[in-house]
């Protein structure tokens, strides 16, 4: 079976982010970029499926500029068979992104499309479900593990306080969260093999983005804490502050 995995190049989650001079984007200088960790779960899931089946092809797909090739190379090094870069503007508009991805996936015979549950940078959780709608497919989100049973896929979803099991007919779109799919390291042979694997670049068929970032700012610097008193006597004041000032209760 052919599996498509959509991946996004994002700043390393440990990177210290600075807002760029335009106030609308992050300053990329000195920032290490990686494959979004949720997308790594999706790559791992696809590779395990292919390995268990002993056949099939895993294609990594991304939308972005030439630098987004790094993310595809990482996917290839982990074991994806081929990669496609849809060259175009990375937009905060999930629908525009989903349209570009859908145009490529529609043309291919890929019964299963996997994505991370969300991108680690903008946290929107839009692209997977929107892609499913555009492709006319069912979608399961936040899936921690799944199995294929013939032409169905059985997914375990992490929901508040428990697990939900859902079954979808193929073709389907599944978004993956942390669970069973702890990503493998790219082996050194895998890294060497990655440069010999096909990486195709084509112009993205992006629709107009109807969402734009107006401004971006860092959270305020953390200030020193406040000691409200000691022992049981301090509890009423602590509760009052948590309720009235911090709005935490």
């Amino acid at each position: 079976m052919n599996i498509f995995v959509c991946v996004k190049r994002v700043p390393d989650t440990e990177t210290r982010i600075r807002v760029g001079a335009d106030g609308q984007s992050i300053d990329p200088d000195g920032v290490k970029f990686v494959v979004s960790p949720y997308d790594e779960f999706a790559i791992e899931a696809a590779l395990r499926l292919k390995e268990a089946a002993g056949e099939g092809e895993v294609t990594a797909l991304t939308l972005g500029d030439a630098q987004a090739q790094d993310a595809l190379r990482s996917a290839l090094a982990m074991g994806a068979d081929r990669a496609v870069l849809l060259e175009g503007e990375v937009t905060p508009d999930g629908l525009a992104t989903a349209r570009a991805l859908a145009a490529e996936i529609e043309a291919a015979d890929a019964p299963l499309v996997l994505l991370g549950v969300k991108a680690a940078d903008d946290d929107q959780q839009q692209v997977g479900p929107m892609l499913a709608i555009l492709l006319g497919r069912p979608c399961a989100t936040a899936v921690s593990s799944f199995e294929l049973n013939g032409d169905k896929v059985t997914c375990r979803r992490e929901v508040e306080g428990g697990t939900e099991v859902v079954e979808l007919p193929l073709p389907a779109v599944v978004t993956i969260t942390k669970g069973e799919f702890e990503p493998r390291y790219a082996s050194l042979k895998g890294i060497m093999a990655a440069k010999r694997k096909p990486l195709e670049t084509k112009p993205a068929q992006t629709a107009d983005s109807r969402l734009r970032v107006e401004s971006m700012e860092l959270p305020p610097e953390r200030t020193g804490g406040k000691i409200v008193g000691e022992g049981a006597d301090a509890v009423p004041e602590l509760v009052r502050l948590l309720r009235e000032e911090a709005n935490a209760l």
């Binding site: 790094d70 190379r73 990482s74 090094a77 390291y185 790219a186 050194l188 890294i191 060497m192 990655a194 440069k195």
Partner: peptide, 14 residues
């Protein structure tokens, strides 16, 4: 090279 850095970063993470 990109491959050299990828090798290093993989071992670093490991």
């Amino acid at each position: 090279s990109d491959e050299e850095k990828m090798v290093r970063d993989t071992i670093r993470e490991w």
